[in-house]
């Protein structure tokens, strides 16, 4: 159980990162052009009211005190008020996070399945037609813009064939699987090439390794070698890469939510930017950064569970 010790210590190593994340998002909102009080109150507020609000929010304090106040508010779950929705930003973001999480999970499942199937198909027929097809796809796919792909899918499958809705979000899980199918496909098609290239390469190098040859000489079947040795050994780098790409995945979600009008936090972020609702933008940035840190922590744990050689 020695190797699971880091599950306890790793979060401690993440503390400086969390601290840095909070500093950056604090600086970000403080560097917005214009007076936050004016944004909050509108232009009609009298100087006295403005001064009162400024004192109330601690905006007349030195920057260091302001940062500490910001931290204190964070820990108390007070993230400020949205100037557009007239309620706490926490409620605004919490309401919109469902569709995004659903879409992310959908894409993850889809991308993992496609990557496993196509990489296996290509690696086990290396140099032959399936391999050529998969390699061409993973080459061209690297440069696929998700937003364009989404629009092309809408043209084909929503407008021409009328199989899927062009936009929106459902009520139940089954409905969501249907509504978010095209958005998930367009992100998956752009994400999987990176994963396929990596997994295919490590599958091939594992297949050619000495232990695989040894297993072959003992008369083990190719299927047996593949599923009990080659595939498990190739999974660790693939999982690490998936973890690294999680950050990219969130970016892809923001764009695709816009294309398909999915009411998630990506769409909220873009509309908040145009509405100058900066506290919402700040909270989303913070939430997403923490999600990325959490996912990478989970990836670390997973790698250690799968591969006994990993120590952190």
């Amino acid at each position: 159980m020695e190797r699971f010790k880091f599950i306890l210590f790793r979060p401690l190593q993440l503390l400086p990162v969390l601290f840095g994340v909070s500093v950056i998002s604090f600086v970000m909102v403080r560097s917005i052009p214009g007076d936050p009080v004016r944004l909050l109150l509108g232009t009609r507020a009298t100087p006295e009211v403005a001064a009162k609000i400024r004192a109330q929010y601690g905006l007349d304090e030195p920057l260091m005190t302001q940062y500490l106040l910001f931290l204190k508010n964070l820990f108390q779950g007070d993230f400020g008020r949205s100037i557009v929705y007239k309620t706490s930003t926490f409620n605004v973001v919490a309401e919109r996070i469902g569709p995004t999480v659903f879409l992310l999970a959908y894409v993850l499942v889809m991308a993992i399945l496609i990557t496993l199937i196509l990489s296996t198909w290509a690696a086990r027929r290396q140099g032959r037609l399936p391999d050529v097809i998969v390699r061409s796809y993973s080459m061209v796919g690297l440069g696929l813009p998700t937003f364009w792909l989404g629009i092309i899918l809408i043209m084909q499958f929503s407008i021409a064939l009328n199989w899927f809705p062009t936009s929106g979000y459902g009520e139940s899980v089954a409905e969501n699987l249907y509504y978010l199918f095209l958005p998930a496909v367009s992100i998956t098609l752009a994400l999987s090439p990176v994963l396929i290239r990596n997994l295919r390469a490590s599958l091939i190098s594992e297949m050619e390794s000495d232990y695989a040859t040894a297993a072959r000489s003992r008369g083990m079947s190719e299927n047996g070698i593949y599923f009990s040795h080659v595939l498990p050994n190739s999974l660790v780098p693939a999982i690490t890469l998936l973890g690294i790409n999680f950050a990219w995945l969130i970016g892809g979600t923001v764009v695709v939510e816009q294309v398909f009008s999915v009411p998630g936090i990506g769409q909220l972020m873009i509309s908040s930017i145009f509405a100058r609702d900066y506290l919402v933008v700040q909270l989303i940035t913070l939430v997403v950064a923490i999600a990325v840190i959490a996912v990478n922590f989970i990836v670390d744990v997973l790698t250690a569970v799968i591969d006994p050689r990993v120590h952190l």
């Binding site: 400086p16 990162v17 840095g20 994340v21 950056i24 970000m28 560097s31 917005i32 052009p33 950050a247 990219w248 969130i250 970016g251 892809g252 923001v254 764009v255 972020m269 873009i270 930017i273 900066y278 933008v281 700040q282 989303i284 940035t285 997403v288 950064a289 990325v292 840190i293 990478n296």
Partner: peptide, 22 residues
């Protein structure tokens, strides 16, 4: 490297959008 860890833990695209919004 600590500075790099912090920058990298922000999703690239989200951070870009946030900076551009400012």
């Amino acid at each position: 490297m600590r500075f790099l860890d912090i920058t990298i833990s922000f999703p690239f695209f989200i951070l870009m959008i946030a900076i551009i919004s400012i």
